[in-house]
Amino acid sequence: MRKVLLWLLAIIITLGSAVYQRMTGPTYPFRGKTVFLGQEIKYKLPRSAEATGNCQVVVNLPANLSGQVQGFLQFKRHKSDTPWNILAMKQEDNRLVGFLPKQPPAGKLEYLVHLVSGSQEISLTGEKPVIIRFKGRVAPGILIAHVIVMFLAMLLAVRSGLAALNKKEDPTRLTKWTAVLFFIGGFILGAIVQKMAFGVFWSGFPLGTDLTDTKTLVAMLAWIAALASGRRTQPKRGWVLAASIITLLIYLIPHSLFGSELKW
């Protein structure tokens, strides 16, 4: 019964960290709301797009503002001295629709969405532009496998830590499987995803600043150290617990933070 409860606790912690990573990462759509002409306007602006085509940006308007508001996209390449470009958005029923031009994989644009009605104008996000990164298309099978294996690695990492706290349970098997899954998910499947999306197999330390790759490396080293602490016996509980805590802290860092970025 205790083991069942520990597995349930591990699943809850893993799901919570996965949702947190997804919702706080820089590729998650930027959501917000503003007031224009006395009406509340909610928006969801993309921060990630495939490099196979232009990226659609949509703003839904209240029905009574239809036909009264014009929309404009103001954009330029991120971290560059290139001038700002402005494109008009089209009115489609109660929506304003515009397209950001596609960029090479890892290329970034920063953009603002302006609403105009007569002499009144507003930027949805104020003076702070939204940053969007383009990526190559990743085969769905590879991506799904990567996500599943990394989720299982995180689940076993948490469960290993709980086993280390339970003196009646041997964490050896869980620790070994955690290390194996991190290697497969991060260094095999993860490298393939990185190559398909951004053109390189690895862009973390020491080759680059991609924090996702670097986080994977740190987690892998932590679990190797945990295994090495018990080469002829079971891994030492303190090392397993430390590896579990390190992994959990790593997963609290938003996914894709300081990710691959094309230098203009």
Rank of each mutant, 00 (worst) to 15 (best):
G71Q: 09
G67P: 05
A88Q: 14
Q91V: 04
E92N: 15
L124T: 07
T52L: 13
E50H: 13
Q39Y: 11
R95L: 14
I122E: 09
S117P: 05
E110A: 00
P83S: 10
R95K: 15
H114F: 14
S66I: 00
P62M: 07
L100A: 10
E40L: 05
P62V: 07
F72R: 13
L109T: 10
Q70C: 00
L124N: 12
L124H: 08
G126F: 13
V59W: 00
E40P: 10
Q74L: 12
N85G: 00
I86G: 02
V57P: 02
F75C: 08
L115R: 05
S66W: 01
A88W: 04
L87A: 12
I41V: 10
E121C: 05
V57G: 01
G53N: 14
K79E: 15
E121P: 03
L115G: 01
K42D: 07
E110S: 08
S117K: 01
G67W: 08
Q91I: 10
Q56N: 06
D81I: 05
Q103C: 07
P83H: 02
T52M: 04
N64E: 15
N60V: 15
V97E: 02
G53S: 14
L124R: 06
L100Y: 10
Q91W: 02
A49R: 02
G98P: 07
A49M: 06
T125Q: 14
S119W: 01
Y111F: 14
F75N: 08
A63T: 01
Q120H: 14
P62T: 03
I41C: 02
Q120L: 15
V58K: 12
K108E: 15
A88F: 00
L73T: 07
W84S: 06
Y111E: 09
A51M: 01
F72C: 00
A63W: 09
P105V: 06
F75M: 10
R77W: 03
A49K: 01
S48W: 06
P83Q: 04
L87K: 11
L87E: 05
A49S: 10
V116I: 13
R95D: 06
Y43G: 03
R95T: 05
V69Y: 09
Q70S: 10
Q68I: 02
L61D: 04
S119N: 12
T82D: 14
V116F: 01
R95F: 08
